[in-house]
């Protein structure tokens, strides 16, 4: 009987195997490199294209950067492009939605994770998942059909007339509904991750179950809940189609009146998109840069705040 199979080794075959291994490793690496560099491509190309209108020698006449950044009027027909008030409008609508949605989301998350009986909690989680999976156009149709009517009715209670219900308030309500599942599911995860010992300690000290939930559990989950809020805010900033359906297209601003029409960065980018050349098209890339900058800056600030309030309090 043979005791060794060593002589059966085929050096040639082995070498080929190694070569194939190496080739595939490179292939996998290339795929990962491609996926990882997409974000760089996105930022780079949009920067290049968006900056062009402000450089000398631009085909359709150089734009004034300061006027663009701080302008309070956006008229495509007159080639007046000022994005300043639109940034303010975007911030108002996104933070308004967060303000409305955040408490409801956190309370719902607490109910799902700690208070509700098991079956009810499973049902509510499904509801939240369903809300998260509804595409934004469908929310848009809903907003243009129902939320707008609600706003109109509210306005008539105060005796104010609206532009068919399209208004800042409609945008805020719509965005609040859309970011609700994001914040809620993050908050549920954070609450469920809270150390059970902490709760037991609180209960042992004589606090009621509810006191424990509100004062211990929520406080310990603070960091995760905050992360959810940041994520939700990002979604509110970037939401385009649904918002465009109810924002109206205010030509100047900023809009502080809840019942007045407004204009956000994303609705500006979608409004009247027809030609694929010309200043009116290129300027949308500049608006895109502003949008990315707004998201980035607000994320940085909120993350800094999160670090501060974080898990020390």
């Amino acid at each position: 009987m043979e005791t060794s199979l060593r002589h059966q080794r085929n050096a040639e075959k082995l070498k080929r195997k190694m070569r194939i291994d190496k080739a595939f490793k490179y292939l996998f690496f290339l795929a990962a490199l491609l996926s990882g560099s997409c974000i760089l491509l996105i930022v780079l190309f949009i920067l290049i294209k968006g900056i062009q209108p402000f450089l000398p020698g631009y085909r359709y006449g150089q734009m004034d950067l300061l006027q663009f950044l701080f302008g309070t009027m956006w008229r495509q027909d007159q080639a007046v492009y000022g994005v300043g008030y639109i940034v303010i409008n975007t911030l108002i609508s996104a933070f308004g939605a967060l303000l409305l949605s955040f408490p409801i989301s956190v309370l719902t998350a607490l109910f799902i994770a700690k208070i509700a009986p098991r079956k009810l909690s499973a049902m509510l989680s499904t509801v939240v998942e369903l809300l998260a999976s509804i595409p934004s156009v469908v929310y848009g149709v809903f907003a243009a059909g129902m939320i707008v009517k609600l706003v109109k009715w509210l306005a008539s209670l105060w005796g104010i007339s609206t532009a068919g219900g399209s208004s800042l308030l409609a945008v805020i309500l719509l965005l609040a509904i859309m970011i609700f599942p994001t914040i809620t599911s993050m908050a549920v995860t954070a609450i469920q991750a809270v150390d059970h010992e902490l709760e037991l300690g609180s209960l042992a000290l004589g606090a009621t179950k509810t006191q424990t939930n509100f004062k211990v559990v929520l406080k310990s989950a603070k960091s995760g809940i905050f992360a959810g809020a940041i994520l939700g805010l990002g979604r509110a900033f970037g939401e385009a189609t649904a918002v465009s359906m109810v924002a109206g297209n205010k030509l100047f601003g900023p809009t502080f009146d809840l019942f007045d029409i407004t204009r956000t960065l994303t609705s500006t980018m979608l409004a009247g998109l027809k030609e694929t050349t010309g200043l009116d098209y290129d300027i949308r890339f500049s608006v895109g840069i502003v949008l990315m900058a707004v998201i980035l800056v607000s994320n940085l600030i909120l993350n800094a705040v999160k670090e501060k309030v974080g898990n020390h309090g």
Partner: peptide, 10 residues
Amino acid sequence: GVPSIVYGLM
């Protein structure tokens, strides 16, 4: 985290 409209521009 990139909004879908930015993907459109890209």
